[in-house]
Design a protein around this nucleic acid. Structure first.
Lengths: 115, 115
DNA sequence: CCTCCATATTGACATTCATCAATATTCAGG
DNA sequence: CCTGAATATTGATGAATGTCAATATGGAGG
C-alpha cells in the first residue's frame, strides 16, 4: 500500500526529532518523493494533459502521441505519478484510464507554503 | 542571468505552442527545473530551516550541522536553490547569508494548482 | 482456442546526480 | 603582506534516472 499520504502531518512519528529547526529527516524524504515525481518535464506534461481533458481521464494511447515518447516510457512515467499519489488508474477492458486524484495538486502545493 | 523566473507567465514567449493540450515542451522544462530543485530531502530541509529562522536568514555554518553533510555539499545544494529562484544569497564579510526569496514558495505552489 | 490490440514489465545503456576530499577564492585582522 | 577562517569550486565515484527495444500480460472477438 503505502501511497505517500501527501499531506500527512507526520506529527508524533517524529517526536524525537533532536533539533534541526525545520523538517525531520523522514518528513523531508517523504515530501521529496512527491516533488521528484514532478521533477520531469514529460511528467508535468502528462499531468497537465490529463487535467485539461474535459472527460477528466485519458488513456495511454492518447498520451503517447503528444509527448513524442515510446509507449513503455509513458507507462513508466504514469506509474511514477500514480505511486506519488497524483494520478488514479482505472482499467476498463483493454484500456487504462488515468485521472487526477482529487485535491492532490492542491495538497502538494500546500507542502510548499507550509514548509 | 538565468534565474528561473519561477512565476513568469511565459505568455507570448510560447505563442506558437503547436497543440499538445497541456504544457508546451519549453514551459514544462522550465517548471520541472524548480521541482527538481525541490526533489531532494536535504534541500527541502535547507529551505525549511532558512524559513524557520527568526532572523530570516542563515549562514552556511548554521546549515551544515543540522543536515549532517559536508560544507561543500551544503554549498552545492544552496547554489541549486538559488539558481531555482527560491533562495537569495547575500555575502557580508566572510559569511554568506541565505534567505527565502519573498513569495517564491507561493509562486511555485501556484505552478501546481495552475497546471 | 487463436489472434490482435492496448498496456505493463524487463533488461540494457547513457546521462544525471549527490556526495566527499582536495583545492581555490575571498575577506578580516594583525 | 601573511595568516586564518568561511565559503565556493573542481574532480572523482557510486547510485539513481530516463529512455528504448524486446517481451510479457490480459482482455476482446472471431
Amino acid at each position: 500500500m503505502s501511497s505517500l499520504q501527501t499531506a500527512a502531518p507526520a506529527a508524533d512519528a517524529s517526536c524525537c526529532a533532536p533539533s534541526a529547526a525545520g523538517l525531520s529527516e523522514e518528513d523531508a524524504r517523504q515530501k521529496a518523493l512527491v516533488f521528484k515525481a514532478l521533477s520531469d518535464p514529460n511528467r508535468l506534461r502528462l499531468l497537465s494533459i490529463v487535467k485539461a481533458d474535459e472527460s477528466g481521464e485519458s488513456c495511454v494511447c492518447d498520451l503517447t502521441a503528444p509527448l513524442d515518447l515510446g509507449q513503455p516510457t509513458v507507462s513508466h512515467h504514469l506509474k511514477i505519478l500514480v505511486d506519488a499519489g497524483l494520478l488514479h488508474r482505472e482499467k476498463r477492458g483493454t484500456w487504462a484510464y488515468y485521472s487526477l486524484v482529487p485535491g492532490a495538486l492542491e495538497r502538494t502545493a500546500g507542502l510548499l507554503t507550509g514548509l
